[in-house]
Design a protein around this nucleic acid. Structure first.
Lengths: 126, 126
DNA sequence: AAGCTAAGTTTCCGATAGGAACCAGCGGGT
DNA sequence: ACCCGCTGGTTCCTATCGGAAACTTAGCTT
């Protein structure tokens, strides 16, 4: 075909695809990054991240918890206090995420330049 | 707050967030990976990737083109032939993507284990 | 003339995303 | 005694996402 052979991982059915789809949504990477420096409370994440709704945060956290990437710690206090922190497994994702953020810092502007160099009607305002 | 100071990149308003949101959708990373070994035709990508619809592929390719990550080459032939390839900018994304796939290869199974260790009703079958 | 081909596009429709607003439990002010 | 508000979470509702499948275009084969 074009350099790939049927056994190549990542394309079609393979565990890598599952894993990539796990983190390839709007908030997962941002939330993981927000937890990268230690335990953080729900409300702290809300203002830290900026732009995420409570619902999406809770939903993202639940999914990460179910996938074993973070751990939830609810303290029986009033008002409630809930902290989230990376598991050792989750911590292994921080390096790849840092590579992405490094790329973004280095090339983000080039992407934006390309965007308004082609003012084609792609109808989206990323 | 919890180790972050206001100037930290990535959280809230910053170019890194824009860039991460650019690639944080279901297909972008997979398509870029599919192009990582040289020019590929539309139809080749369809069967190479497996599971993507023509519509989503076209849409993803258009967006990547608009962001300057890939280049489209349409040959005036019948039946049509269109090849896509990474731009130099797009090629810089391959390394971060490889880190993700390496992570996935190493830890994908652990994630799946965690998933069916918590059979909580998260109602999704990633 | 009919049918194939490859890349797109369009239409239809179910699934998902995501914001606004609401809920629960309890301590404190008045 | 009553209401307020703090915090994490959930419900409701709509806009968007995204897949399946039909349609388009134009030259070549049969």
């Amino acid at each position: 075909m074009s350099g790939f052979r049927p056994g190549d991982f990542f394309l079609a059915d393979c565990p890598a695809r599952l894993a990539v789809e796990l983190i390839a949504d709007k908030w997962t990477v941002v939330v993981l990054y927000g937890l990268s420096k230690g335990p953080v409370r729900h409300g702290e994440l809300i203002e830290l991240i900026g732009g995420i709704s409570r619902k999406m945060l809770t939903q993202t956290l639940r999914r990460l918890e179910a996938h074993g990437l973070i751990r939830r710690h609810a303290y029986a206090e009033v008002p409630p206090r809930v902290e989230y922190e990376l598991t050792p497994l989750g911590a292994t994702l921080i390096d790849p995420i840092h590579m992405l953020t490094e790329w973004a810092r280095a090339n983000g502007e080039a992407v934006l330049d390309a965007l308004d160099a082609d003012p084609e009607p792609v109808a989206q305002s990323d």
